[in-house]
Design a protein around this nucleic acid. Structure first.
Length: 484
RNA sequence: GGCCCCAUGGUCAAGUGGUCAAGACACCGCCCUCUCACGGCGGUUACAAGGGUUCGAAUCCCUUUGGGGUCACCA
């Protein structure tokens, strides 16, 4: 074994990848890669009730989409497998029994009824240590009678336990606060509390990277390392990701805050690269620069644990959109068109002007989901009000727009070169000839042709896309409306 | 409730005893411009409160307040 940095991402198969989990994976990956280390994927499926089929694929696909390469894992293999906890049951049993043998764990035969009664007595109290001091004979007898049992960790009753976290510093807890947690469940599966410690040790994990919700239970894990005589890993607890509630308060980011899984986000048209870039900056910032746009590769260069923040951060969709816009604009058009395809209503996909529409829209949308709405007016002229023709800067009114449109209609009807340049030249010339500002002329035509006060592209760009027939038709309609 | 943790603008954040307290998003204004977007320029908004320590505190200590996490045969 060398002393390379080894981190792991150990999600449980819940069916979707929470964005907070992705960030944990990203940081763990970055910490490993910054040092040329190893990144392990391990599936923590010890809770059989909550197991959701197909989850592992979601996890693997997400990591792949985010470009977080796995060095060892269920999909890659490796020298420390298996990487799925349900396939490691004998290991946990062996280590749990070993712990009993050396006096730091014990068999517990308390049944559900007793535990529930305990809980009713004091909802905030833990296990009372009822089976802590059973004699060897009693244990042997119960075992021979096949009484269901669990194995609990025997916590010290005095003193304090402390450890150093690389972001939060020294954490110290009175041992009297520590309850005798279950290590091995009655169904023979280990709990997270036990399995992850055994696996992290066996797999040579050097940095345990996870959310700060584990900050206060880590003393229990640290004790396990001590009991076994294993060197403790380094701990890197990450500040939680929060969401803003309707009433302004914040709480752990969850579904009611909006899209929170990676799949939800990509389904709305956020690009994986933008998501990754954004979440890298949620709870971390680089020391030497104010720049925020970085590729994954660049992040491995500048990422450091020292830059990780302690306080929870609120997930801000506005900022995500900003990142997304940047990545959307950087995307070569051909690629953008491919990404856009699934977001275009089927009946519009073969419209001849679709490519031009996409070119107009690419630099103006926040996420791919916006494509349909942003281009809708090309297909359906919105109902609009005469007041749209009022523009202060160009001094337009419904009245002068009407005369401009009448002139424009006439000129456009005779126009051969229906290209953006041709259209622009035509209208520009017309405006000079008729003595109106070009901006005013453009305003009138643009509104007539789009029915909107704000459009992706100018009057002539829109007309080029729509074609002569539709453009003329819409202008005639506008004239009719203004004359009414 | 006990325990643990956190506290700079609406949000993300720099800042580690001496700064006019960076920067980004959002918002507002101006410029550019066939509208919008992009780009450029400018602006509004912050050290939770109260005590200390110090010549000097956003930075150190205490208290309060606020927020979060955790107390499962879930992870």
């Amino acid at each position: 074994m060398d002393n390379r940095t080894v981190t792991r991402f150990a999600p449980s198969p819940t069916g979707f990848m929470h964005i907070g989990n992705l960030r944990t994976a990203l940081y763990a990956w970055l910490i490993a890669k910054a040092e040329g280390g190893k990144f392990i994927l391990r599936i923590e499926d010890t809770d059989r009730q909550r197991l959701i089929p197909g989850s592992m694929e979601v996890i693997i696909d997400t990591l792949k989409a985010a470009h977080l390469t796995v060095d060892e894992g269920p999909n890659r293999g490796g020298e420390n497998g298996p990487y799925i906890q349900s396939e490691r049951l004998p290991i946990y049993k062996e280590y749990a029994e070993k712990l009993v043998k050396i006096g730091h764990a014990y068999y517990c035969f308390c049944d559900k009824t007793r535990l529930e009664a305990l809980h009713e007595e004091d909802a905030n109290g833990g296990y009372d240590g009822h089976c802590r001091n059973l004699t060897e004979e009693e244990v042997a007898r119960k075992l021979s009678e096949n009484t269901p049992y669990v194995i609990r960790q025997k916590m010290p009753q005095e003193g304090t336990t402390s450890y150093t976290d690389m972001v939060f510093g020294e954490i110290s807890v009175d041992n009297s606060e520590l309850t005798d947690q279950i290590l091995l469940k009655a169904d023979g599966f280990p709990t997270y509390n036990f399995a992850h410690v055994v696996d992290d040790y066996l797999m040579g994990v050097t940095h345990v990277v996870r959310g700060s919700e584990y900050l206060s239970s880590t003393p229990k894990y640290v004790l396990l390392y001590d009991f076994y005589g294993w060197p403790r890993p380094k701990y890197v607890h990450l500040p939680l990701l929060m969401g803003k509630n309707a009433n302004g308060s914040i709480s752990k980011l969850s579904k009611r805050h909006g899209a929170v899984s990676f799949a939800d986000l990509t389904a709305q048209g956020y690009l994986p690269e933008a998501i990754v870039n954004y979440i890298a900056f949620l709870g971390w910032s680089p020391k030497e620069t104010n720049e925020e746009v970085f590729t994954l590769e660049e992040l491995t260069e500048i990422f450091s644990i020292e830059g990780i923040n302690k306080s929870p951060s609120v997930f801000d969709y506005d900022k995500l959109i900003w990142f997304n816009e940047i990545y959307l604009r950087k995307t070569p058009f051909e690629e953008f068109a491919e990404l856009a395809a699934p977001f275009i209503p089927e009946q519009r996909r073969d419209f001849a002007g679709m490519e031009k529409i996409l070119r107009l829209i690419q630099p103006r949308i926040g996420k791919l989901e916006d494509i349909e709405g942003a281009s809708d007016f090309f297909f359906n002229l919105p109902d609009y009000d005469k007041t749209l023709y009022i523009n202060k800067k160009n001094k337009t009114t419904p009245e002068n727009c009407l005369s401009m449109l009448i002139n424009a209609l006439d000129a456009l009807k005779g126009l051969e070169d229906w290209s953006n340049d041709g259209l622009f030249a035509c209208l520009k010339e017309l405006s000079e000839k008729t003595g109106v500002k070009a901006g005013a002329m453009m305003w009138a035509v643009r509104v007539a042709v789009s029915g909107l006060s704000v459009t992706p592209g100018g009057a002539t760009e829109l007309m080029e896309v729509m074609g002569k027939e539709t453009s003329i038709e819409r202008i005639e309609k506008a004239i009719a409306m203004l004359e009414a």
